[in-house]
Design a protein around this nucleic acid. Structure first.
Lengths: 109, 109
DNA sequence: ATACTATATGAGTATATAATCACATAGTAA
DNA sequence: TTACTATGTGATTATATACTCATATAGTAT
């Protein structure tokens, strides 16, 4: 790569994007936008095993998307900064463009 | 998942996020923000095999991030909508927050 | 102390992704 | 036509990811 200086930055950014690039994780983020929740409730809402949800949560913590703290037996997870929600509008932007393109193709037929 | 209606949407969104979640692909996007480029030049800039770059490009086209057209022997790829660049500010937001948190931890020591 | 609950993690498996090499295709030029 | 170049794709391998189950840990309650 010509600008190999940027490589480490791209790797960090890729980690963030990857942390968001999974249906279950997006569902978790969407759930957490209404407030902090424990693993237990997240797992029930998502409809997946707690152990599996636990792994997804750690992954997002590692990426810097979520924060967590203990509360008795439970561990409460929450969105770290509102900027995470910006991703949704970014992704919606791309998807809307996709629909627009598909329409144009159909009109030619 | 309680709101399984959202599932298909989350899957589409995850596809977009995943398409961005790779260092090489971020480098490609960063390169294309200055204008359309052929596979050949992208591969040279990125420093990876053409066949490999070609696959990364198809993946991003499938996700709706890139568009492409033929020009003689070459295939020119380009960013589809400026909204893709919004991702960079989103990811930077998360990374800045991460640095901020790390600083706070160090201050306590 | 025991019993219980929430969460995390190791091990194993299945699937997905990335990368490389070889080859096929499509367009160009002589 | 042949020779050349750019790109895409099949096959393979290596690695990463997702998931499940069983088990360990930490906190609570009796």
């Amino acid at each position: 790569m010509s600008d190999s200086k940027k490589r480490p930055l791209f790797e960090k950014q890729a980690q963030v994007a990857q942390a968001i690039g999974h249906p279950l994780r997006l569902a978790i983020i969407d759930f957490l936008k209404d407030g902090p929740q424990c693993v237990c409730d997240i797992a029930e809402y998502i409809g997946s095993e707690r152990s599996n949800v636990s792994r997804h949560l750690s992954l997002m913590v590692a990426a810097g998307i979520l924060g967590h703290h203990k509360k008795g037996l439970q561990v409460i997870y929450e969105l770290k900064c509102p900027c995470i929600l910006d991703f949704f509008s970014c992704m919606s932007g791309v998807l809307k463009q996709r629909v627009k393109d598909d329409k144009e193709i159909l009109e030619v037929l």
